[in-house]
C-alpha cells in the first residue's frame, strides 16, 4: 500500500490498528531494546562492549580422540556448528519440501486438503513431546533398531549424532518450508506456464525460467522460517544429540540459567544481527539475480 500520509488515514482505521501497535511495541520492540541494552551493559548497567568481545575471543581447549588438545574460540566454534546444522536441515527441508509443495499445488483439490492435513497434524502436538517421541524411536534400543534387529540388521547408532539433531530439526520445521512455497505455487497463474510453453519452453525450461523464479518469495520465507528456529534451537540438540552438540541456543540458555543475563543477551544480539544481515543479503541477491532477469 502506498503511504498516503498519517493525517489522511481514517480515524477508524487507526483505532482498529491500535491494539496491534500496542502489542508490537510491548512484545516485540521493547524486548529487543532490552536485549540490546543488556548486551552492551555490565552487571552494574554501565556501558561496555566486553560481552560482545567475549563472544569473539573466549577460548577453550578441546581434547581430541587421540588425547591431543586444540585451542579454539569457544563461541565462534559453537556458532559455526549451529550454522552448519541449521543450513543442512534447511537444505534438506527445501529439497524435500519444494517437490512436495509442487505436487500438492497441482493435485486435485481433495488430495490437496488431505496432504495439507497430514502436514498439519504433527503440529497439533507440542514440539517437546514430538522431540521426546523421536528420542524413543531413535534410541539404540528403540523402535527402529528393534525392527532392524528382527531382520538381522543394525543396530544403527543414530541418537547422539549430528544426523539425529538434523532429523529432529527437519521433522519439526518441515511444515514451515512446505506451506509458504505451496501457497505461492497454488495461486500461480497457470496461463504463465502455458505462455512459456507457447514460447518454446520444454517442461524443465518452464520450471527453471518461470516456476522457480516466481516461487522465490515462498522459498525465501520458507528458508527464513526454517533457518532461524533451527539455528537458535537448544532443545533438539540436548535431547537428540545427547547434549554432545552444544549449539548457540544451548549457549544462550546456559548463560541465562547461570544468571549471566548480559552475556546471554550479547550472544542473542550477535545472532540476531548476523541473521538479519543474512536475510537482507538473501533478499538482495534474489531481487538482483532472479528478478532482474538472467
Amino acid at each position: 500500500m502506498k503511504s498516503s500520509g498519517a493525517s489522511r488515514t481514517p480515524v477508524t482505521y487507526r483505532a482498529a490498528l491500535a491494539p496491534y501497535s500496542v502489542w508490537s511495541v510491548l512484545f516485540v520492540l521493547v524486548p529487543l531494546i532490552f536485549v540490546a541494552f543488556y548486551a552492551f551493559t555490565d552487571n552494574d548497567f554501565a556501558f561496555t562492549t566486553e560481552n560482545i568481545t567475549r563472544f569473539f575471543t573466549a577460548k577453550s581447549n578441546i581434547v581430541g580422540e587421540d588425547g591431543s588438545t586444540t585451542e579454539v574460540r569457544t563461541y565462534v566454534l559453537i556458532f559455526m556448528r549451529s550454522l552448519k546444522l541449521a543450513v543442512i536441515s534447511t537444505l534438506v527441508c527445501l529439497f524435500m519440501g519444494y517437490p512436495m509443495a509442487y505436487i500438492m499445488a497441482r493435485a486435485k483439490e481433495k488430495t490437496q486438503k488431505t496432504m495439507m492435513t497430514l502436514i498439519m497434524i504433527p503440529m497439533w502436538m507440542n514440539f517437546l513431546i514430538r522431540t521426546y517421541a523421536w528420542m524413543t524411536i531413535l534410541q539404540d534400543t528403540g523402535i527402529i533398531n528393534g525392527l532392524l534387529g528382527k531382520i538381522g540388521l543394525g543396530p544403527l547408532h543414530v541418537i547422539g549424532t549430528e544426523t539425529a539433531v538434523i532429523l529432529g530439526m527437519v521433522y519439526d520445521y518441515f511444515p514451515y518450508m512446505v506451506l509458504p512455497i505451496y501457497s505461492i505455487l497454488a495461486k500461480m497463474d497457470l496461463k504463465l506456464l502455458e505462455a512459456a510453453r507457447d514460447l518454446g519452453c520444454g517442461s524443465l525450461s518452464v520450471l527453471r525460467r518461470v516456476i522457480l523464479p516466481l516461487s522465490m518469495p515462498g522459498v525465501i520465507s520458507g528458508v527464513t522460517m526454517v533457518l532461524i528456529p533451527s539455528i537458535s534451537t537448544f532443545y533438539i540438540s540436548q535431547k537428540l544429540g545427547n547434549g554432545k552438540f552444544f549449539l548457540i541456543g544451548d549457549a544462550i540458555e546456559g548463560q541465562y540459567i547461570a544468571n549471566n543475563l548480559h552475556f546471554a543477551a550479547a550472544i542473542a544480539f550477535i545472532l540476531m544481527v548476523i541473521l538479519l544481515a543474512a536475510m537482507a543479503l538473501l533478499k538482495y541477491v534474489t531481487a538482483r539475480f532472479v528478478y532482474g532477469g538472467d
Binding site: 496461463k191 502455458e194 505462455a195 519452453c201 516466481l214
Partner: peptide, 18 residues
C-alpha cells in the same frame, strides 16, 4: 506446444511478472 510454429497472445496477456 513448444515445438509448433505458432505463438499465442493470451486473453489476459499472461506476461511474466518477474
Amino acid at each position: 506446444p513448444h515445438k509448433r510454429h505458432v505463438n499465442t497472445v493470451f486473453q489476459r496477456y499472461a506476461l511474466f511478472p518477474h
